[in-house]
Design a protein around this nucleic acid. Sequence first.
DNA 1: TCCTTTCTTGACTTATCGTTCCAGAATTGA
DNA 2: TCAATTCTGGAACGATAAGTCAAGAAAGGA
Lengths: 190, 190
Amino acid sequence: MARIKEFDSDKALESAVGVFREHGFDGTSTEMLVKAMKIGRQSLYDTFGDKWSLYRLAVERYASAETEAHIRELRSNGRAIDGISAMMDRVVAEADRACLGVNSICEFGQSRPDLTEVHLAADHRLRHAARVSIRQAQDAGDMDRSASADAVIDFLIASIAGIRIAARGGAGQEALQSLARLALRALMPR
Amino acid sequence: MARIKEFDSDKALESAVGVFREHGFDGTSTEMLVKAMKIGRQSLYDTFGDKWSLYRLAVERYASAETEAHIRELRSNGRAIDGISAMMDRVVAEADRACLGVNSICEFGQSRPDLTEVHLAADHRLRHAARVSIRQAQDAGDMDRSASADAVIDFLIASIAGIRIAARGGAGQEALQSLARLALRALMPR
DNA sequence: TCCTTTCTTGACTTATCGTTCCAGAATTGA
DNA sequence: TCAATTCTGGAACGATAAGTCAAGAAAGGA
């Protein structure tokens, strides 16, 4: 019938993620996107709609990949507590690049319902997986039982955000490792 | 000699802080600033220079006030640990409004040295005051000694950032209180 | 009172933004 | 080969941005 797409739309989206996570929505121009994604302006609009749609899609893609990575680490070890620790370690190791999730929440807060929806969906997936790990860790006696599983999840997510902000503010790997260690310390049995 | 300024430049700056902390630098137009600050466009440029200078000044003002507030709480109680707890409580109580410090770091990372300088100065002041409180709390047996004072400060600052991100993401007061409680738990002696 | 200075107001300039339009090249199926 | 489709690149559009200019109003000092 017709000509086939010449560019890999997945790779292009990945490149868009890279630009958005570093510069945010307002800080990113379509010119930057076209350059980074290596596609024509028209292809961008034809394939992804307008800038906001592309951004939302990028956040969705990023959140999805990030959630998967978290869950993978959670399940990487026999002992649940080791999985939780591994999740934090990965966050520390990859904290040199900005987090699109944190950036997006900072930039827009609750002002864009369609964006909030994206965040909530990813949050829900992570919560579900983490709750299992936390219960396991508690049952194994590796984690304190005085805080509810939900409170622990909230704390882990907030700690991850804190680590990422610290990294964006210039903290080095050792400092970030120390943050992760202290966060886990709050959850240890006593 | 000549006519005197009709507007209060301090109040105007305060209004600018209010706009910037909610919308960030790129998300704020000079039109929004002029409206919020209730001054003429020319007065804005005459008094504060360009938009970036105003932003830097706003961040400086905000960081300074915020640092003072933290220190005030730290010293509000006889027991150092209670001061630390009070500092976290205030953060939770005021988390409904966005933090210009966190937003600024999210938006620009380390890409603007003059901005980084502002952050570092405030960070330094807070660090100095917090170190004293932490040593006191440790000496009083109210805080674990296994982490260095600097590590504890890093952790407290990261926890504050985490709480603020959580709030911006939609978390309620109870959830934020739980975050603060868990963070302090990491520092308790065992 | 008048002069000097500086604030205020709003129109103006210039640049850049997101977005669309257009023409030509490329590629597939018939 | 032809027709249909869609990619590419650049030009163009309207809107909005930051920042400047110019004229008048207001206030203090002589």
